[in-house]
Design a protein around this nucleic acid. Structure first.
Length: 999
RNA sequence: CGCGGCGUAGCUCAAAGGCAGAGCGUUCGCUUGAUAAGCGACCGACGAGAGGUUCGAUUCCCUCCGCCGCGACCA
């Protein structure tokens, strides 16, 4: 026994002590940790640690290198990082090579605006240089932002679609499509922006409200032709009848009337000839009433009814030009769906105070140069693809009356002209959704111009021919299509769609529908900032030549000099020597001026990146992008994959939803409801953003608002404090030396470890299934309920008051260590900074600078934890019941508190009257109950017969005095002379401590 | 107009053809040895439909409404 003076009681407690700060101060600590990671080359360290493991490739879809990142980009990158890190910790070698989409119109337009007037005089090379600089600056700043989010990857060597190698590969892949016979040059109507003067891809138009003039125009029947005469005779009895017959068409684009070459009717619809004011009009029978009302036809009389098929190949005359307009049959002709939805439309239109909702005549004005359906039917009937509109949207000189005018400005003049000439029956303003350019927001037009296309339906017969890479690697193992049967891109795509795993599952339908309906891919753009289409035109015969051997020659130059060579070098330098026109044998050439669609650039990435970077391989395991990429990158990548390997470039495609604000409205930069990720980082830290991402179901639309972020910040603090409590109580614990074996742990500690096992399994399963919100909820719930409210609260007494080295305390620490270690690992993919910080503060018996630093250096090099095997169904069931009883007790304590009987729970003595079966359970834990309930005393007895509830609780003041040291009430306080204010438990602990000090 | 998705407490998520759960937040209280912390209690919801199937529907079907996305047509 010690003879020294008694110890100061409060100082003998083992209160938590740790370097793990309560306040995270993320806006400062995150950059510091990033710096540390950079210094230790963490990404390389991880790569080396995973060498030889099974690969898991997430292929990064390149964000557009144009401006600062927005919340959507941040969300995208964070999700990818969570995938990569979680797969890494599952044991895969999961490299991450980020990329940037550098070419394209948005940058070119930005540069153009900046250059202003000067641009006109500048050569293409100068503009391209400016674009290149802009992209380089933007991607540099984006890289900084992405890294700041805690995303690990090969940031020092990302792929850039504007690098020499990438540009060369892009051009080379164009060559692949050529070789396969998928590429053709033709005139088809494509979306055309008259402001930016370029063709647009489908993905580049957006629909917006637009008001157009809606006009009803009459085209006279040509009674010169035999058929026309016969038709008139049938209708009116005599071909000499003075009444003239007109076909009544409706359009909202009067400017396309000069290009009218025909009128389409539906063969299955009934049409009627109606007479009014001495003229006869043909309209769809169902629309007679609507049309007469609209056009103010007085006393209309139906003369005849007949099917549309009857009109086939009749000839009308153009409304004002001396030119025929052919009647044609097409199923695309509708009645506008108006019949079914009149009420609905009337309401909507009335709101707009425009139009009345009934439009159309059942006869469709057809201009094959200005519409998709028009083009198709015009082709079928052998019409010209006539498009008298130039790049700037001006009528060409051949257009009478309107030459030189811009189409949208000509609209009212054409209407006026029609009115004066008497061809117009009615006009009004018509509000509808109309395609607009995604960049400049101006309305676009449909315009037939010569463009390069990739055919979706052309068959490629030479499927096996180039299943060899330039380096001779055999590629045939990639394909299923063993017979090498001819297959179109569309068919191949539809086949591959079924093999891919889509998350969520409905993505498959969406992709399939998109692929079924899409037209040929227009890949040429009349711009300069992109990869030039490596094609030439024969000066002698005008033949457009895209030849594989020429393309190879060109791409070799690109590889060395970048695609700038196309502009800096002379044509002869770009062609193989003595290259002659395959058609006419001439050798004078002019280079193509169009560039490739940027979707072709990014679509090339699977080949240009996965097959070129060391450590990557084709195909990717996962693509992960927003839902807008179904028709964008998922689609273009699929086309390239098919052209090269006849396979999809991805095994699985995950999509995330759209960002909405707190009210569920779409988040738009212009809508004023956008949240800037950089602001959030500055104020709260990237961890908060990451935690928000993890907490939401990302494959649906996600809401974000200051309030929602506040919830994430709250959750962060709770998890941080939970970890801090564990770390604080591990002070002085050496896992090697002090760990208590599982069978020797008190049951409560084994229960905690069993709960941990459950969490580990749930979390790992959720990571595997990419369900990060389940990870979040499982971990958060574990922290709040299992740990903070239950386990930690109960073991506090043991941790603080028992002798530091006592078995009971070491047992709790053993569990705490396992818990903290597992928490760090399980949280690591989400809370990348904090998990690492927990990891650092875990006690370790390893001396500093030990060789084992590979895993000790950072949690991100470690693996996920394994379940410890502490689970025991019987034990878990018992504890579930014990906690139910505890809940009842806590409620009673609360009542006693309200009644001012007690304050702290330790002031209470709890009497339990319980049913026999509950008693059976509780009596085994008789001595534990006071700790489980956190009270000073517990009396347990079987309830007398007739008790209704299984557990009845009464609360009274605890017996005895409050122990100064542990705050429990005990009748033994005062029994010790050395420590007169301490209870019997504390007296014993103090003796142990004093003995320990001597030792 | 067509197609697809979504709609469960203030927020984020569960579950299930049979009493709708959790955590957070709010409110109230306790504690002051996790302290710009900790514990407890209370309050709180199935978008609408006297629609259909069913003994029973929030769940399955239909209609409507709202939100989100995509597309078509009007050339």
């Amino acid at each position: 026994m010690s003879t020294e003076t008694p110890l100061e009681l409060k100082k003998t407690l083992n209160l938590p002590k740790t370097g793990f700060a309560q306040k995270a101060n993320l806006s400062q600590s995150e950059p510091a940790r990033l710096k540390k990671w950079a210094e230790m080359n963490l990404y390389d360290l991880i790569r080396r640690s995973r060498e030889g493991r099974e690969k898991f490739i997430l292929h990064d879809g390149p964000p557009y290198a144009n401006s600062d990142i927005h919340l959507g980009t941040a969300l995208n990158k964070i999700l990818k990082d969570i995938v990569v890190k979680s797969r890494t910790m599952m044991g895969y070698d999961a490299p991450y090579v980020p990329g940037y989409d550098c070419h394209g119109l948005p940058i070119e337009l930005y540069v153009e605006r900046k250059l202003g007037e000067k641009k006109a005089q500048m050569p293409a090379t100068s503009i391209r240089r400016a674009c290149r600089e802009h992209a380089a600056a933007a991607l540099k700043s984006q890289t900084r932002d992405f890294q700041r989010l805690g995303v690990l990857g090969l940031w020092e060597n990302p792929y850039l679609t504007m690098s020499n190698q990438y540009e060369a590969e892009t051009a080379r892949l164009f060559g692949r499509f050529v070789e396969r016979g998928y590429v053709y040059k033709g005139a088809r109507p494509v979306y055309w922006c008259i402001h930016d003067q370029t063709a647009l891809a489908e993905a580049e138009v957006e629909y917006a409200e637009h008001t157009s003039p809606s006009v009803y125009v009459k085209f006279p029947l040509s009674d010169e032709t035999l058929d026309g005469k016969a038709f008139k005779r049938e209708l009116l009895g005599s071909e000499d009848d003075p009444r003239r017959v007109f076909f009544l068409i409706w359009t909202t684009t009067p400017w396309t009337l000069p290009a009218n070459l025909g009128i389409a009717v539906n063969p299955a619809f009934e049409y009627a000839a109606i007479e009014s004011g001495g003229e006869v009009y043909v309209v769809a029978a169902e629309l007679v009433e609507a049309v007469t009302e609209k056009c103010g036809l007085s006393a209309p009389k139906v003369l005849a009814r007949f099917m549309g098929a009857k009109l086939d190949r009749l000839e009308a005359r153009h409304a004002w030009l001396d030119r025929p307009s052919l009647l044609m049959l097409g199923d695309h002709v509708t009645l506008g769906g108006e019949a079914d939805a009149e009420t609905e439309l009337d309401v909507k239109e009335a709101r707009d105070r425009k139009g009345t909702g009934k439009a159309g005549t059942g006869l469709v004005h057809t201009a094959p140069g200005h519409g998709h359906d028009d083009f198709v039917i015009g082709k079928a009937y052998g019409l010209d693809i006539y498009c008298p509109v130039d790049n700037a949207g001006r009528f060409t000189p051949e257009v009478e009356h309107f030459a030189g005018q811009r189409v949208f400005e000509a609209n009212p003049k054409i209407v006026e002209f029609l009115r004066e000439s008497g061809a117009l029956l009615f006009s009004e303003n018509y509000a509808h959704r109309y395609p607009h350019c995604w960049r400049c927001k101006n309305p676009v037009i449909f315009r037939a111009t010569p463009q390069w296309f990739i055919s979706l339906d052309a068959l490629s017969a030479d499927a096996q021919q180039f299943e060899q890479d330039d380096d001779g690697r055999d590629r045939t193992n990639y394909t299923d299509n063993e017979e090498g049967a001819p297959e179109s891109l569309r068919d191949g795509a539809l086949r591959e769609v079924e093999r891919v795993e889509w998350v969520p599952a409905w993505g498959e339908d969406r992709m399939r529908n998109m692929l079924r309906g899409r037209p040929d891919w227009c890949i040429s753009r009349q711009r300069v900032w992109g990869v030039p289409i490596p094609a030439f035109y024969c000066d002698a015969c005008g033949e457009a030549v895209a030849d594989p051997s020429v393309i190879k020659h060109v791409t070799d130059i690109f590889e060395r000099e970048s695609s700038d060579a196309w502009y800096t070098r002379e044509t002869k330098d770009l062609l193989p020597e003595n290259f002659m026109c395959p058609k006419c044998g001439a050798s004078g050439w002019t280079k193509e001026t169009d560039i490739l669609d940027v979707w072709f650039d990014s679509g090339s990435s699977s080949i240009a990146v996965l097959e070129k970077y060391e450590g990557l391989s084709w195909p990717a395991d996962v693509y992960l992008e927003g839902g807008d990429q179904y028709r964008g990158w998922f689609n273009s990548s699929l086309m390239v994959g098919l052209a090269v390997h006849e396979r999809a470039p991805y095994r699985a495609v995950l999509t995330h939803g759209w960002l909405l604000d707190g009210q569920g409205k779409a988040m738009h930069k212009s809508g004023g409801n956008a949240i800037s990720p950089n602001d959030v980082i500055k104020e709260s830290g990237a961890e908060i953003l990451r935690l928000w991402v993890a907490s939401s179901v990302y494959y649906e639309d996600m809401s974000c608002s200051p309030d929602i972020l506040q919830r994430a910040a709250d959750a962060y603090r709770k998890m941080r404090n939970t970890a801090r409590f564990a770390l604080g109580n591990l002070d002085g614990f050496d896992p090697e030396r002090d760990r208590v074996a599982l069978p020797e742990l008190p049951e409560l500690d084994r229960w905690a470890l069993a709960e941990l096992d459950t969490v580990i399994e749930r979390v790992l399963e959720a990571y595997k299934a990419y369900e990060f919100h389940t990870v979040y909820h499982a971990l958060y719930n574990f922290c709040t309920v299992t740990l903070s409210a239950r386990y930690f609260d109960i073991i506090k007494d043991r941790l603080y008051t028992y002798a530091p080295k006592s078995h009971a305390r070491r047992a709790a620490q053993t569990a705490l260590f396992e818990i903290a270690d597992a928490l760090a690992r399980l949280l690591a993919p989400i809370l990348v900074f904090t998990a690492d910080e927990i990891w650092e503060n875990l006690p370790s018996s390893k001396p500093e600078g030990d060789q084992a630093t590979a895993t000790t250096a950072s949690v991100h090099v470690a693996d996920f934890p394994l379940a410890s095997g502490a689970r025991d169904a019987g034990m878990l069931a018992r504890w579930t019941r014990l906690f139910e009883v505890r809940d009842v007790v806590l409620r009673s304590l609360e009542e006693a508190r309200v009644a001012k009987l007690i304050g702290s729970g330790l002031e209470a003595k709890v009497r339990l009257d319980v049913s026999r079966d509950v008693y059976e359970l509780l009596q085994h834990y008789r001595d534990e109950l006071r700790y489980i309930f956190i009270v000073s005393q517990v009396d347990l007895s079987i309830a007398e017969n007739g008790a209704t509830e299984p557990v009845r609780v009464s609360v009274v003041r605890a017996d005895g005095e409050k122990c100064e040291r542990c705050w429990t009430y005990s009748e033994h306080v005062g029994a010790s002379t050395r420590y007169p204010t301490a209870c019997e438990r504390c007296t014993a602990a103090l003796a142990e401590i004093e003995a320990g000090e001597d030792a």
